[in-house]
Design a protein around this nucleic acid. Structure first.
Lengths: 229, 229
DNA sequence: TCTTGTTAGATTGTCGACAATCTGCTTGTC
DNA sequence: GACAAGCAGATTGTCGACAATCTAACAAGA
């Protein structure tokens, strides 16, 4: 028997496609925080009935990027400065743990994939495609989680990533400036290739690139605007 | 204005009740791992239509205790030794982080609640109600997460707890022995009341009570049985 | 005997319609 | 004018029926 491993077939249900569409719309900021999702309107736009749409929305509620109130509606989650801080502080802890687990698992395939994803970020940066830049940067970071060989940890990180992607997208949208041209992931990639695990963990803990400081400033801005209302 | 804080009203939709029912059935082991959930049968038993049932199942899939394959069905997740180990190792990391965050927040209300929940565990133990014992023990542990004031962390822990509760329930069912009579949480509670945070974290990291060792032995048993098939 | 095509039954996915609930406006009363 | 009651209109929650898909049993052919 030939040793050829096929990837699983796409589960082509309307529901799955709706989930993907909605998630993308939320994570890129096309659907803004707090915005209400009108079931009838969306189902008509997508040319599907409300049943699969509602099931899709239920999934995204559990995924943490939608929130639902009975008989009132389903809304994109609100983003507060505290949410961003909370997500980031947890992310740091998880990163440290993931590095610890992934460290002995690093192999040739790991380094290849590391370079590949790093390259993807650089390409998106050159193309000034901010959405793609955020996406690829998070995929780069996700590598240590994929190599950590802990399914619960990976799942947890993927949930967290949804939010982080949303936060960054909002941040980018808000300041609508050209994206930083230089590459901020060099150190991270280099440390993961090196032999000093502690150093890699410290880098993750203290200076997760993806300029967190700016994101926080944006978050604080949100707070102020909210307190005025 | 009187300073009286009301608890939120129950969101009485069939969906929410179905979620609660199913979750309970899964977490107590009434629905066994790998078992398929027949929509028509369940909807008839519960006297509801398939729509809210399906939405409920979609939520539980995202919650991680059900898994779904398109056009094939929805199943209770399988439990492997690795799953248990993964969940536990992550739990340790999160516990340490939660203690760190909750530590400065401890106040009179915290200690009261700590004693209250500890008492609930002891009561369930005396009553030899194993299901309730597991439930209360996890609630006791959840206190530090509730006091950590980090919504993402709390959410993450609640997801993890679902699984842990299921694992313990299965474990208890498998060995169907009377439950340990003596109280294993004394040290944990005492350390949380003390002033040495590091000690509390070490206790959490090294010896989370809820006899992990036994659970692991059970998990390994599962592995062996699985490999025979 | 093994493989491949066919078919019937069961189960999941989707649809359109109806019921329950909320919201905002109007109306009437003081 | 202020306030409560009641009435549309819109929106969410639920239902029963139909369509798409899978599974397993069976038949046909090599």
């Amino acid at each position: 028997m030939a040793k050829l491993d096929f990837s699983p077939i796409a589960d082509t249900t309307r529901r799955a496609e709706i989930v993907a569409l909605l998630r993308r719309a939320i994570l890129t900021g096309q659907l803004e925080p707090g915005q209400k999702l009108n079931e009838l309107r969306i189902s008509e736009q997508m040319r599907v009935s409300r049943a699969p749409l509602r099931e899709a929305m239920r999934e995204l509620v559990q995924e943490g990027i939608l929130t639902s109130i009975a008989y009132a509606g389903t809304f994109v989650i609100d983003v507060t400065a505290k949410d961003i801080i909370d997500a980031y502080s947890l992310n740091k802890v998880l990163d440290e743990f993931a590095i610890e687990l992934a460290w002995p698992q690093r192999d040739a395939r790991f380094f290849d994939e590391l370079d590949r994803r790093h390259e993807a970020v650089k390409q998106a940066t050159r193309a000034k495609n901010t959405t793609r830049q955020i996406e690829t940067a998070l995929q780069l970071h996700g590598l240590i989680y994929e190599w950590a060989d802990n399914s619960v940890l990976l799942e947890t990180w993927q949930r967290l990533t949804s939010r982080l992607q949303m936060y960054f997208a909002l941040h980018q949208r808000a300041r609508n400036e050209p994206v930083p041209a230089e590459d901020v992931h060099e150190t991270y990639v280099a440390l993961l290739k090196d032999s000093d695990m502690r150093a890699a963990q410290c880098h993750a803990r203290e200076h997760i690139d993806l300029d967190f400081e700016e994101l926080l400033a944006y978050a604080r801005g949100l707070e102020k605007r909210a307190s005025k209302n």
